[in-house]
């Protein structure tokens, strides 16, 4: 049985890492975006989710509960298929109590991430730094609000 869950920060090349790991191991590759593709109301781009103000989310208890149930059950259904690499924002949250799952968080230094962001979004390096910082801040709040954990909680070693 092989399940690898890669939790990635924005602009860290985590997506590329996940896809390449899946290719090399011959595993199925699944991203958060694919998971939500057919979900209708939950198919919200991460960027938009991150723009939601947590106090507003707090008032969306019902939505939150349904979102979590949906993503969790969809993910588990796919993980049961075995030999899967899942990559996405906070993926490890859903499998934190699962033994036998390789949980990896891919991070990178701010300047490197900003360089990637600047290239992808066509903005200056300076603007990209601000953008990445804002995304991180939003992710932290989103993670705390939705999952009750810190987004960059480190478990295990840093390599």
């Amino acid at each position: 049985m092989g399940i690898i869950v890669i939790s990635r920060g924005a602009y860290t090349m985590g997506k590329e890492v996940g896809e390449e790991v899946a290719r090399r191991l011959g595993y199925n590759c699944l991203s958060r975006e694919e998971l939500l593709e057919t979900s209708g109301e939950f198919n919200v781009p991460e960027v938009r989710l991150l723009g939601v103000d947590p106090p507003v989310l707090e008032n969306m208890v019902y939505w939150k509960r349904r979102y979590l149930s949906f993503i969790q059950s969809s993910l588990f259904r796919r993980l049961k298929e075995d030999n899967v690499v899942y990559h996405g924002f906070s993926g490890r949250v859903f499998v934190r109590d699962f033994p036998g799952v390789l949980k990896v968080r891919v991070e990178a230094d701010l300047q490197d991430r900003a360089r990637i962001a600047a290239l992808r979004e066509g903005v200056t390096q300076e603007r990209a730094v601000g953008m990445v910082k804002r995304i991180d801040e939003n992710r932290k709040r989103w993670c705390r609000q939705l999952y009750g954990v810190e987004s960059a909680t480190v478990v295990g070693s840093i390599l």
Partner: peptide, 13 residues
């Protein structure tokens, strides 16, 4: 946690 700035993409994979 893997810091991709300290390890190449190839190395991370």
């Amino acid at each position: 946690m893997i810091n991709a700035s300290r390890i190449s993409l190839e190395g991370t994979v």
